[in-house]
Design a protein around this nucleic acid. Structure first.
Lengths: 273, 273
DNA sequence: TTGCTCCTCACGTCACGTGAGGTGGC
DNA sequence: TTGCTCCTCACGTCACGTGAGGTGGC
């Protein structure tokens, strides 16, 4: 058995701890080449070293064990590099989010008291083309961009012009449970044919307190905070879904710093604004 | 109570889920301004919104809850920005590691069979200046750089010249338990005064199988794999600590691609190499 | 023979999420 | 009054780590 290693030697060979190797055996990610039936001693083959190194690299990239298993079991190189590419893409987007969070943290700490401007608005019902789905809050931004892209493209294909800025209607669960129903819409007067995820929808009218947020959506939480504070202090809150209006958004410019987003919080009908 | 919010409204105000808010209450990170003694209903003040936003940002940056608590409780702005800076530094180093892991993964997948050159060597005992500590494997590289820096600086201050490249002796636990004793040394013939962590040490002689690794230490695992494979296939392994020799390292150049590291695995005395 | 290596098993950790079962507030 | 909001409690998840208690191999 000259080319088989004890778990200790395999640990030194692969730079993974013995506990980790036993864990990977338990979950079937890295099975020893042989297990002594009465001592239980594991034996790894030298041929398993490269696979173990790959596993270690994926773990350094925080790929979940299940996905690593899928990569190792991938039938062909194409499927494999697809999975890897997907993960690297996710990593990259996380990286961008981290960079945005660092910038935004500095701003939060240096300018703590900044509040967004708030106004009251009576929003009439409006016909629109809409896409609705149940989404996780962490995927919400990506989903929003995808859905907006589809909406504008389909309206264009149907020769329909938007009659106002795009908007979104977000169920309370999306905030309180981190998962819930979301609807994005583009108002349009025309007759919509349902293609893809697209559906016609009459967005109901509401009375809103509206906060305006300038800049990237990653930092929109400050405007949410301002708005919630305003509504609480004036005791205006009623049940209903939060709205957002993308006054200047992806469709207008790719420079996120120039985006303008309105957030609408449902309130009592008030006579004066 | 116009400026107090239910947990649901506070959730919408801060973009954190209700489960998360309850968790933060439980662990004392974010205590509601008031809790109804008989219904248990939580009430948050509008003044808690900024703190909650800060917590959320830190969590986006993966700061542990205990550290966030420490930041929020920091007595002065200096202590606070110290903690934040420390964390951002850690993040940055993780980012570098991630980038290195991506590069290294590509290489692993594209060039699977590459083995490092291996030779046998009889290493005589040698007097040296050394630093020894118990380290976690994840901190090992940083610790190594710090210790090497101290060693070279202290020898220089004492007017002693190194008589060979720096090296390290690593206990098996460091690999198998991910934590163990590590010693870095710089061989020198002179009379060492113990300053700081520095101690004189006679590094014992050994018989080694040696693999040579060219490039950054993040990718040294491939050479470990080659070496372990070689030792297993020739049934040469004996108990003893792994050694590394930093033939070209930090002390020689800051260009990590040009580093050359030898790894020594203890083996039986053999007559022929 | 000694001491190290290896084993299992149960439980812990971290930051929440899940889901059952129930109550409170508008 | 209805239905939503809110509550607790116990358990689950992910990827291991800890530690007790014990055995195997050179």
């Amino acid at each position: 058995m000259s080319d088989t290693l004890t778990i200790g030697d395999f640990s030194r060979a692969t730079q993974m701890s013995v506990k980790t190797l036993r864990h990977y055996h338990r979950v079937g990610l890295l099975e020893p080449a042989d297990v002594d039936p009465n001592s239980g001693y594991r034996r790894y083959s030298t041929e398993q070293i490269p696979a173990a190194q790959v596993v270690r690299r994926f773990r350094q990239l925080e790929m979940p064990l299940d996905e690593i298993r899928a990569v190792l079991a991938a039938p062909d190189p194409a499927a494999r590099s697809q999975l890897i590419g997907d993960h690297l893409g996710r990593l990259e987007r996380e990286l961008e989010q981290t960079a945005a969070a660092v910038a935004s943290l500095r701003e939060l700490l240096s300018e703590p008291g900044r509040e967004s401007p708030i106004e009251h608005r009576t929003v009439p019902e409006v016909p629109a083309a809409a896409i609705t789905a149940t989404v996780e809050v962490e995927d919400a931004l990506d989903w929003l961009h995808g859905a907006l892209g589809e909406l504008y493209a389909s309206l264009d294909a149907q020769g329909l012009a938007p009659s106002g800025p795009a908007g979104g209607v977000y169920s309370n669960d999306l905030f309180t449970e981190a998962r819930g129903q979301a609807t994005v819409f583009v108002p349009t007067a025309g007759d919509i044919r349902p293609v893809g995820r697209l559906e016609p929808l009459v967005v109901p009218g509401v009375e809103l307190a509206v906060a305006t947020h300038a800049g990237r959506l990653a930092e929109i939480d400050r405007a949410y905070g301002s708005l919630a504070k305003y509504v609480a202090q004036h005791a205006l809150g009623i049940d209903g879904s939060i709205r957002e209006y993308y006054v200047v958004g992806v469709h207008e410019t790719s420079d996120q710093e120039r985006w303008v987003t309105e957030i609408g919080w449902p309130i009592f009908q008030t006579t004066a604004a």
